[in-house]
């Protein structure tokens, strides 16, 4: 053995027949991609906007940030804590959505691909 003995790596060129790209136009994949794109774009824009809004307020709206809310806690500290809360919440929402709406689609496509690969392995070449 020099190169051959270990199982061939699964590159596109070594897949034999249809690789993962085969599913690129599958309706389930198109749906999966659309859902992921919408979710990711929404989450990314939402958190970047909210975070840089907070940074901008810290830089340019210091009067507002200095206003006291309760005891010694002012708007600046409160918004900072809300950044923590919103990060946890966004992460939770993303994970929840992914579990419900993305994972099942991906699992079905994986199962199809595995079945197709098994089929191909059975055929004599």
């Amino acid at each position: 053995m020099v190169w051959g003995a270990r199982p061939a790596r699964r590159g596109p060129e070594r897949e034999g027949g249809a690789g993962p790209g085969h599913y690129a136009h599958d309706a389930r994949f198109v749906l999966l991609r659309r859902r992921y794109a919408r979710l990711a774009a929404g989450v990314a824009l939402g958190f970047l906007g909210w975070y840089f809004g907070y940074v901008a307020l810290s830089g340019f709206a210091r009067g507002l940030m200095a206003r006291k809310v309760a005891g010694n806690v002012n708007v600046a500290l409160l918004l900072g804590l809300l950044q923590f809360v919103s990060t946890f919440a966004l992460a939770g929402l993303y994970v929840g959505y992914a579990r419900r709406r993305l994972d099942p689609l991906a699992a079905r496509l994986r199962a199809d691909a595995a079945a197709a690969a098994a089929e191909q392995a059975r055929e004599p070449r």
Partner: peptide, 10 residues
């Protein structure tokens, strides 16, 4: 190929 791999894990 990359897109399907990345999102499905195939």
């Amino acid at each position: 190929d990359l897109a399907v791999r990345a999102l499905t894990g195939v």
